[in-house]
Design a protein around this nucleic acid. Structure first.
Lengths: 137, 137
DNA sequence: TATTGTTATACTCTATAACTATA
DNA sequence: TATAGTTATAGAGTATAACAATA
């Protein structure tokens, strides 16, 4: 099972790269943007916990998104150790653009599966990684 | 879907590491051993094509397995450019040992899924990555 | 004492280009 | 000319340890 998950995941990963070519997006960055979009004001640590990214590795990723003007960091009022992350307008556009591109490509990849099979697959995968996730957002 | 595949795959990857701790095995190496085991005499390139590993990256991986005494390389009689790979006795033991460990751990990870759900998940994953695979062995 | 963010570091994985020897 | 294996190299992802500021 681990093997097949690994291979299927690799197929989607290279498809992601093809779908978002030219946008400078990567799977990790896209994941961060998504989490920040649905949880405005969330801290770096919490994003990392949700996505399985270590605090130390979140730093350069958050720097990258900040330097590109896709997110903004401000000191969290209730905890001055933490940064509150929010999407900028540009960040929202990039996220929206990528969601469209990825949706199209994923539809093509899943063309061989019926709608019922897709939903089933999605739910099974969720059940697998939900067990092991620190935080669910 | 790409996101959930990525996360589920990561869960199995870290479980693989835990299951095989101390054996020096990694997912890539294990994959190579498996393919060589079921296709004795296969060439490095063919292994790479089956597993999605580039020729250039196969070199150091095959070196590593050879230096550990898990596989043997011999010049292929019908094509002197290629190496024919076979498992050594030690390679078979390691593979067998890891298969046992991984089986146990995967059973635990999939405890929440019925037998029917596991088979379904496996078949759906196979159908996804079979489309994009160069070689099926 | 614990946690947030940070720096530094190292290892694995992956991707590309150029070389050699065989075909 | 095409392919198998090789070398060198660079980028991305991930993991750990140690530090400052704040809780």
């Amino acid at each position: 099972m681990g093997y097949h998950l690994r291979r299927a995941s690799a197929v989607f990963a290279s498809d992601f790269a093809a779908a978002t070519a030219g946008t400078g997006m990567r799977q990790v960055l896209f994941g961060i943007l998504s989490v920040v979009a649905t949880n405005p004001g969330i801290s770096q640590s919490r994003v990392g916990a949700a996505l399985g990214i270590q605090r130390a590795n979140m730093v350069s990723l958050a720097n990258e998104l900040t330097e590109r003007g896709l997110i903004e960091r401000s000191v969290a009022p209730e905890d001055r150790r933490a940064f509150a992350l929010v999407l900028t307008g540009a960040g929202e556009s990039v996220l929206f653009d990528c969601l469209g591109r990825i949706g199209q490509h994923e539809d093509a990849l899943l063309a061989g599966l019926s709608s019922a099979e897709r939903h089933l697959l999605l739910r099974l995968l969720q059940r697998i990684h939900a067990q092991s996730s620190e935080v669910d957002l």
